[in-house]
């Protein structure tokens, strides 16, 4: 099939950038969205046009590197799916697709569709860890953990840090990401020691980076490729309050 693509082109961080329209030919419905872009790039290179830069790594839906706002939706129209797992069978011949980078003051565009998500790393550095002495691995059953707690921590930890929550949120808020990272520790006994400092430092780091404020629109959980629940935001709000008044 043939497609009309409107893609954000921006040479570097200082360039103003603009939407440019391309025709992509001979796209198979079996391709993934990123493979479609590979084919487009090949066609652009043959015409001596600079290929479109976009982020990707595993192409298995597990690393969180791929991004893209596709027709206004983070990771495209499929729920619980990363861009690399979105397949072209979703589209039909002649479709028009708008492809834009994540938009947030905290995620500056580096080139075309690639943004700098270093803000997430800095939030993680501020508290997304537990301090334990290394040594030989402890006995697996030495620390009993309730099944529900383990499940909650696991659900929170499934966040792959892609930033879709920020990109989809009308307020460009990073609450779902930070909530997932706070909750994956807060639900486990290993995370209790740094519980209070963690939530305070991570929220402070989030605010410093210039993300927006949550207004409970819940667009984040709808866009999340890992279906991380916004219930974790409620948990973080609770933890933050408890840490603040103590």
């Amino acid at each position: 099939m043939n497609l009309t693509l409107h893609i954000w082109r921006q040479k570097n961080a200082n360039d103003k950038g603009k939407m440019v329209t391309y025709k992509a030919h001979d796209i198979s419905t079996h391709m993934s969205f990123l493979e479609m872009l590979d084919v487009l790039n090949q066609q652009l290179i043959e015409k001596n046009i600079d290929p479109v830069a976009f982020d990707h790594d595993c192409r298995e839906g597990i690393c969180g590197m791929c991004s893209l706002i596709i027709n206004g939706k983070a990771h495209g129209p499929w729920s619980a799916t990363t861009t690399c797992q979105l397949h072209m069978r979703e589209y039909k011949d002649g479709d028009e697709i708008y492809i834009e980078p994540w938009r947030s003051k905290a995620f500056p565009v580096i080139k075309d569709l690639v943004v700098n998500r270093g803000a997430f790393d800095r939030i993680m550095q501020s508290g997304g860890f537990v301090s334990v002495n290394t040594g030989s691995a402890p006995d697996a059953n030495a620390t009993p953990i309730a099944k529900e707690k383990a499940d909650l921590a696991m659900a929170a930890a499934s966040c792959i840090g892609c930033g879709a929550c920020v990109a989809q949120c009308k307020n460009a808020s990073a609450m779902l990401f930070v909530a997932a990272k706070v909750s994956q520790f807060a639900n486990l006994p290993q995370g209790q020691i740094e519980k209070k400092a963690r939530v305070q430092n991570m929220v402070a780091a989030m605010d410093r980076e210039g993300f927006g404020n949550c207004t409970n629109l819940l667009e984040c959980e709808a866009a999340c490729p890992m279906s991380v629940s916004a219930n974790f935001i409620a948990q973080m709000n609770r933890e933050f309050f408890a840490a603040g008044i103590k």
Partner: peptide, 16 residues
Amino acid sequence: NQGARPIDYVKPATIK
């Protein structure tokens, strides 16, 4: 919140 997204999407969409 306005400041957190200085450049808006050309084609914005809402999921839910």
